[in-house]
Design a binder for these strands. Sequence first.
DNA 1: CATGAAGTCGACTAGAACGATCGACAACAT
DNA 2: ATGTTGTCGATCGTTCTAGTCGACTTCATG
Lengths: 152, 152
Amino acid sequence: MRISAKADYAVRAMAELAAIAPGQPLKAESLAASQDIPRNFLDNILSELRASGLVRTLRGPEGGSMLARPAAEITVAEVLRAVEGPLAAVRGTRPEALEYPGAATRLPEVWVAVRANLRGVLERVTLADLAAGKLPADIARLAKDPDAWLPH
Amino acid sequence: MRISAKADYAVRAMAELAAIAPGQPLKAESLAASQDIPRNFLDNILSELRASGLVRTLRGPEGGSMLARPAAEITVAEVLRAVEGPLAAVRGTRPEALEYPGAATRLPEVWVAVRANLRGVLERVTLADLAAGKLPADIARLAKDPDAWLPH
DNA sequence: CATGAAGTCGACTAGAACGATCGACAACAT
DNA sequence: ATGTTGTCGATCGTTCTAGTCGACTTCATG
C-alpha cells in the first residue's frame, strides 16, 4: 500500500485541525507551516476535503479552515477516501467485482481479506485519537510489536 | 491500497505455475492465455520474478517457466515485493522511518499497524494455498464476513 | 464602504510511473 | 542446423503525482 504525499498531507492537516478549538478557523498559512506542507499544494488538498464535506472554511481576514464534524467522528479512512478514492482497488476495480480463471480463482478473497484488515485499522482511528495522542488499545498493541517495526 | 495490473498479473501467473507439477516448465504462451495476460507484458513480469529468484526458466523448445521453490514456501507478499517494492510506503519512505510534528506525532504508529495487518494476510497465504483453492482458516473467515464484501 | 487579508478554482507543468509493445539476440531439444 | 522458446533493453503513449500560479470571490475590520 502506497500512501501518496497528498494523502499523507491530508491526514496530517486534519489532525492539526482536530487539535484546535472546534469552530475556530485555522489559516491555511499556519497549517502549512505547522505540518511543513507546500502552501499551494495544501490549497488543492483543502479544496478536496471541503468538497467531501469534511472541512468548512471561512473567507476573509480572520478566515481559515475547521473540521465540519467533531474530530471524534472522523476516521483516517474517511480522510484517505476523500483524497484518493477507495481504500483498496485491483487494477482500478473493486476487489469484490473481480473474477479470475483457473488457479487464481480464490484470489479475490485474499484481496477482500486484505481490505478488511486495512479497514480494521483505518476506520477505527479518529482524528480525535491522533490529536489527543491516544490510539485505540488494540491498534497501539499492533504498533507496539517490535516485529511490526522491522522493514520489509 | 492499490494493486497494480503488474502485481495482479504476477500473483496470478505464480498461482498458475504453482498448479502444475513441480519442475515442469510452463510456456509463457500458455501462461498468458490461461490467465489472460498480455503476452509481451508477461515477459517483463517473468523477468522480474526471475531476477528475484522466485522463478526459474528453461529455454528452447519444451522450455518455459517454473517455480524456483516449493509453492508452499512462497507467499503472496513475496510475489508482490518482487514486482513492486515494499508492501507499505508513505511518500516513498518506510513508515518506521517517519517523524511528524505536532498533532500528527502518532501517525507513524497507525501506518505501522496497517502494514502489520497487511502482512497478517499476505504473508500467510501461499501459492500452494491458491493453487489448491484452500485458504488458511482465519483468512477465509475474514473474507467470508459479508461486511467485508461491501464496497467502500 | 473601501481595503486587503484570506479562501476558491481552474489551468498549467515537469517528471515519474503505468501498461504495455517490439526487435534483436541467446539457448537448446530435436 | 533448425526453429522454438526465453532474455533483455529500448521505446512509447497515457495517466498520475506533486506541485505552481494567477485571476477571482468573500467578508471582518477600520
